[in-house]
Each structure stands twice: as structure tokens, then as C-alpha cells.
Design a protein around this nucleic acid. Structure first.
Length: 643
RNA sequence: GCUGACGUAGCUCAAGCGGUAGAGCGGCUGCCUUGUAAGCAGCAGGUUAAGGGUUCGAGUCCCUUCGUCAGCUCCA
């Protein structure tokens, strides 16, 4: 119990402390120990993160935030953003300040400036930031009235705009560090000196408030960490991502190319890439047939009428290629998606409840006119082949179908070596139809996820207007997340196309549809795999599985024979009988990331053996009888082993 | 689409203030017959992205178009 002049502070370990009213978390940290006082950055008071210098007025549960705390990096980066703005104001006194939040792995700050920042200027700004850090100015919080704030930011129109959105119930706070003052909710680290390990990364335009109709500001990105080691590790991760870039590896490994003459965003699959794709497609189709899907093919163009019925015109037009005009004919469109065509097939006969579920799958090639600025290697293109399927079923079958889908997703992702997260998206405000139907379906998806024991995140209101969905987020070898499979329920298209099936009651009923993709598009999926594997595809996917390397011309025949044996066993093998040294041939095979090198010298030719060197293992070779090599490779292929 | 940067041989990159476009790798030819990540030599390869302009003279300066990259906005 505390009297009027003191308050009780309860610490995370359950112990409590009496301190004078108005003490700060810094005081409390000091009370606990000198070490903690030194490492304290901020505090969590009754769950809310506050500054170390914020006076405590009531009894409170208090937790001191240090580098180790989960909130700490965000705090550090937010303060780093202020330091950035401080420096920018020195270099560009005219700069108007926008927002400067922490983001994953770093921070940014948006400025309205007369001229965009140059790379050299970024270096200068970074140098000035180090000055600001050296000054170790405290971050001082102050509560102000709206009128005061208007006065303080009278030269910063962007801040004023934000200010006017604050309501009377909002506490308006400003933070000062040295010469720099910002309208900011905080909290911050105690002083600029806490931000030691940082680097500015890039500058680029960014629309004010993310609205392309508003003016473009100049955004500077940076990263900040608590230790030099963390910073270096992060920069190393960026480097690693560059090293794995599918655009670079795609060219070096002979996987794909794009050509201005042929059109931006249109992928040309080279033989090696085509073989990877073929292997995946074959595996996928076999799996789908085993799982009760029917394969279909539908045309690449369709009459505009189809998209008027589906509703894609007008909602999707800006993503579609312009119509093709034909004399004496209706207008045609390149298809941007496969669903309307699959619906045509469904509608081609009267369906009975006994036929359902019907699962149509197609590797359907679609074309979308993506805005030029978004094109990116194989990941974002204008022509792509979707691993698409549409399941038509009764409302009662939804749960069962999702159960099967989740199993299939798990199988596929494990096969390619991806970890994944599951996200359930629920009804948004703009949803059509009976909310009860939408919610019941959502509950069913929830139940299915629970039955399968999957951990999942819920994105409230994140669903499409036409139905809830389950999204799968892939985690690749670098820990980056990618949009993976999506399992989208649709109440809308069956309605628009007036789909029916005859029920057991001999009356027509409306089926529901599930749009699902497991791999997304072949382009994006293979692009992702290149980066996931860093170009080193596992044996079963590698376009060239074995390279046979004769050391001299004398053993060429023996090596050619082995190549034939491998090929007859269903192994993709090539003979490299060029007049080059073994070292040269090995270097090239390693560069192309061929999983297995089979070396034949005089010893091996005489003994009928082969010296096997696996990719990336250096000089460690293993000599074995040739049938054994074939048997081992066969086993590895059949298991689709990942390494 | 927007902002900025960039576009030189197949690839990676050079070419003060505007003054005859170079190198390595790769390719081809020949020699070498090679034992675990680059053997030696020679040769070919360019309307400097395309188009226009300024200039005695443009890879270099200006404009337009196309493309690429970093972001923004938007999505398989």
C-alpha cells in the first residue's frame, strides 16, 4: 500500500518497490541496479511502452526495456529515423518532414525536398548522423496543445495535415533531440547516443500517405542494430539475397530470359529452365490426378462477354490487355484468369449432387497488363502459367475439401523444402450476400484448421468480398516470407453464372466454388525456387543431373558408355568430352551447379568404376562400381531428396 | 503509372574538361591429352539501347521513346 507521496511499482518477477510519486522508470532501474540503469532504454508501464524519463504518477506494473526486449529494436529504429531527419535538416534546411517510422529490419523517413537526394548526399547525411549521435542529445518529450503544435510546425505542412486529424481525446506530444523537433507519439531511447550501429541504404520516391494522387516525397531507408555484429550480419543477408537473385542466376544457369523486342514481362524459358518446369509440372499433374482432380485445357483468348458475366469487366479491366478488334466479330481479350472458362465446362451439362465435388485443374496461361514499374524478373510478369484449380462443391462439402487442400499444401511445401505459416482471412465490411453464410463458412475453415492442428493467424476483415480464404505464407532459406498457396472460397461467381446442381431433393441448388493454387504461377514459383536453393536444385529437379567427365581421349568411349547407361536409367546425364583439363570441366560443372560429377580416368575405365564428386563437396570423391552409382541416384530421385 | 538512377562486345566492367571505343571472361581456331574450381597461343566480335538535336567533332551535352534497377502504388 502506498501513501500519497509514494507509489508501488510491481516488477515482472512479482516483487514490488515503493518509490516517490513522479519517479521515472530510469529512477526505478537505478534502484534495481546500476547495470540495469545503464542498459535501460525505455520501460513498459502497464503494458504500454514509455520513455525512461516519463514520471510515474500511479501504482504501476513496470518492466525495464533493454536491448534484449522484443520492443527494443523498434524503439531504436524509430529514434534512428529522428536522427536521420536531424541530419537531413542540416544538409537540406528546406526539407519538410513527413513520417519516419521503424520498419522490419530498419527505418525510413519521408521528406519533401526541392531536389531528390543523391547517393553522395546520403553519405554526407550519414556522416552528419554520426555527429548527432556523438552529441548524445536527450530525446525530450513534451505534451502540447493543438494550438501550440500548429505554431511549432507552421513551416511543416505535412505535419500540420497529420496534426489536424488528431481528435480532442488524443494527447499531442512532440519530441526534441538537440536542434530537431518532431510531432511524434514516441517513445524513444533516452538519447541519440544509443543509436550506434546503423547505415543508410537507399533513397527513392514515395507518395505522401501512400496515395498515388498525392505529391511524391523522397524517402531515405536505413537500418539500425544494437551491435556492429548484428549490423554486419544484416548487411551480409542483403548481400546473400543479391547473390541468390533469380534474375542473375536465371541468366547464369540458362533458365530464362526476357527481351525488349518480345515485350517486357514475358518470360522465355531456356532448355534448362524448361526442364525444371517440366519436372515440376509432371510431378504436380500426377499428384493432382492421384487426388481426385480432372485436368482441363481452356483457350488463351475469350470473348469480352465472358468477363462481363464474371464481373471482371469493369473491376479488373485495368489489369487486362486491351481488347482485340476483329472485323465482323465480337471483341476478344487475352484471359487474365481461368475461372470463367472452368465454369463454362461445369455449366456444359446438368450436374447432380452425386457428381460433386468436381475439381478442375489447369496449368492455365494467363496474361495481365501489369504496370511497367512493377515488373520484376520471373516474379512479376505479364504472361504466366498458373497452377490453377476450381472446386465446385455443395456448402456441406466445404470442410472436407479444405481438409484435403491443407493436406495437399503440406505435401507440396514439404516436397520443395519450404516452411510455412497459415493465415485465415475473415469477412470484410464490403462483403456481398448474407453475412451469416460468409461467417458460417469462415467458422468451418477455422474448424478445419483446428482439426488439422495447424497454427494460424487470423486477418480480421481481410477476406475478399466474395468469400473467406486461407493463405499460406512460405518461408524461404533466407527466412523471407512469400505469398504461397491460396485457398479462396467464392460465393459470387456461382451466383453470377447461375451455377446449379440437382440435389437429392430433385431441386436445383447453387454450388460454391473454391479457387485454389498450390504453386501460384510456374514463373513465380520457379523464380522463388532459384532463390530458395541459391540455384543448386536438388537432384530430382536439376536440369542436368550428372555430368560425365573423361580425363583423356583414351577413356572417352568408356565415359560415353556410362552416359548412355545413366540416360537409359532415366537420369539426365551429359558427356563433357571437350579437350579441356579436368579442373576446367569441374569448375564449369560446379558453376552450373550440376549435382553430380562422374569422373572417368584410366583407373576407372579399366576397373569399370566411376569416381563420383558431388556438387559443393570439394575434393571428397567416392569411387564405386557404375551400377551402384545408378542405384544410388535412382533412390535419391524417387525420394525427391532435398540435398 | 509515378520519382530517381542507369543502358558501352554474349557476360562483368574501362574510356579527365566533348577529340580515332578498350580489358578480362565467354566464343571460334590451333597446340596441349590433361586426376578434382580457370593449360598455352592466335583470331573474330561494337551504328556505344533506338530516334532526333546542339557542335568543326558526341559513348560523353539536350529532347523523345524503349528497357533495366531501387522504391512508391498495385498483385499469380
Amino acid at each position: 500500500m502506498s501513501d500519497k507521496s509514494s507509489i508501488t511499482v510491481t516488477l515482472p518477477d512479482g516483487s514490488s518497490l515503493n518509490v516517490p510519486r513522479g519517479s521515472t522508470p530510469a529512477d526505478v532501474a537505478h534502484e534495481i541496479g546500476a547495470r540495469l540503469a545503464k542498459s535501460a532504454l525505455a520501460a513498459k508501464a502497464d503494458g504500454a511502452v514509455v520513455d525512461l524519463a516519463r514520471p510515474l504518477e500511479h501504482d504501476v506494473r513496470l518492466e525495464i526495456i533493454t536491448e534484449k526486449s522484443p520492443e527494443a529494436l523498434e524503439l531504436l529504429r524509430h529514434s534512428a529515423a529522428h536522427i536521420l531527419a536531424t541530419a537531413v535538416r542540416q544538409v537540406r534546411p528546406e526539407a519538410k518532414i513527413g513520417f519516419g517510422p521503424p520498419i522490419e529490419d530498419g527505418f525510413y523517413y519521408d521528406f519533401e525536398v526541392n531536389e531528390p537526394f543523391t547517393p553522395e548526399e546520403l553519405q554526407e547525411i550519414e556522416a552528419r548522423m554520426r555527429e548527432v549521435v556523438r552529441c548524445n542529445d536527450p530525446f525530450e518529450r513534451r505534451v502540447v496543445t493543438k494550438q501550440e503544435a500548429r505554431e511549432l510546425f507552421r513551416d511543416d505542412p505535412l505535419k500540420l495535415e497529420r496534426l489536424e486529424e488528431l481528435g480532442p481525446e488524443d494527447v499531442i506530444t512532440v519530441y526534441r533531440n538537440g536542434p530537431f523537433l518532431d510531432l511524434c507519439r514516441g517513445p524513444h531511447v533516452p538519447a541519440t547516443g544509443a543509436v550506434q550501429h546503423f547505415k543508410l541504404l537507399s533513397a527513392a520516391g514515395a507518395y505522401w500517405r501512400g496515395d498515388e494522387r498525392r505529391q511524391m516525397l523522397q524517402r531515405i531507408y536505413g537500418t539500425a542494430w544494437f551491435t556492429e555484429k548484428d549490423l554486419e550480419e544484416y548487411l551480409h543477408r542483403l548481400e546473400e539475397a543479391r547473390r541468390r537473385d533469380h534474375r542473375r542466376l536465371g541468366r547464369e544457369l540458362g533458365i530464362f530470359s526476357v527481351h525488349p523486342e518480345a515485350g517486357a514481362g514475358l518470360i522465355h524459358w531456356h532448355p534448362r529452365g524448361a526442364l525444371i518446369r517440366h519436372t515440376i509440372e509432371e510431378f504436380l499433374k500426377r499428384t493432382l490426378l492421384e487426388n481426385g482432380y480432372d485436368l482441363v485445357y481452356t483457350p488463351h483468348v475469350a470473348s469480352e462477354e465472358l468477363y462481363r458475366i464474371s464481373g471482371h469487366i469493369p473491376t479488373f479491366v485495368e489489369n487486362m490487355f486491351a481488347p482485340m478488334e476483329q472485323e465482323g466479330s465480337e471483341r476478344f481479350r487475352l484471359k487474365p484468369m481461368n475461372c470463367p472458362n472452368h465454369i463454362m465446362i461445369y455449366r456444359s451439362e446438368t450436374r447432380s449432387y452425386r457428381d460433386l465435388p468436381i475439381r478442375y485443374a489447369e496449368l492455365g496461361t494467363c496474361y495481365r497488363f501489369e504496370r511497367s514499374g512493377v515488373l520484376h524478373g520471373m516474379m512479376r510478369v505479364r504472361g504466366f502459367t498458373q497452377d490453377d484449380a476450381h472446386i465446385f462443391c455443395t456448402p456441406e462439402q466445404i470442410g472436407d475439401e479444405y481438409m484435403r487442400l491443407l493436406d495437399l499444401v503440406g505435401f507440396m511445401m514439404t516436397t520443395f523444402g519450404y516452411e510455412y505459416h497459415v493465415v485465415l482471412s475473415t469477412r470484410p465490411d464490403k462483403a456481398i450476400g448474407d453475412p451469416a453464410v460468409y461467417d458460417a463458412a469462415t467458422d468451418e475453415l477455422r474448424r478445419v484448421l483446428d482439426v488439422r492442428g495447424l497454427d494460424y493467424r487470423v486477418e480480421e476483415g481481410g477476406g475478399a468480398f466474395y468469400g473467406p480464404k486461407i493463405d499460406i505464407q512460405l518461408v524461404d532459406a533466407l527466412g523471407r516470407e512469400w505469398q504461397g498457396p491460396t485457398l479462396q472460397l467464392d460465393f459470387n461467381l456461382p451466383e453470377r453464372f447461375q451455377l446449379e446442381y440437382i440435389g437429392a431433393d430433385n431441386k436445383p441448388h447453387r454450388p460454391v466454388m473454391i479457387h485454389r493454387t498450390l504453386l501460384g504461377s510456374m514463373e513465380r514459383f520457379v523464380g522463388g525456387l532459384i532463390e530458395h536453393y541459391a540455384g543448386a536444385f536438388p537432384l530430382w529437379l536439376a536440369p542436368e543431373q550428372v555430368r560425365v567427365l573423361p580425363i583423356t581421349d583414351d577413356v572417352r568411349a568408356s565415359a560415353a558408355e556410362l552416359t548412355d547407361q545413366l540416360r537409359r536409367s532415366g537420369i539426365r546425364a551429359h558427356l563433357d568430352d571437350r579437350a579441356e583439363t579436368l579442373g576446367y570441366k569441374i569448375r564449369e560443372a560446379e558453376t552450373l551447379k550440376v549435382p553430380c560429377m562422374a569422373v572417368i580416368g584410366k583407373r576407372e575405365a579399366d576397373a569399370g568404376t566411376v569416381a563420383v564428386r558431388r556438387r559443393g563437396t570439394g575434393r571428397k570423391q567416392e569411387v564405386m562400381p557404375r551400377p551402384e552409382l545408378i542405384a544410388r541416384l535412382r533412390r535419391e530421385l524417387e525420394s525427391r531428396a532435398l540435398s
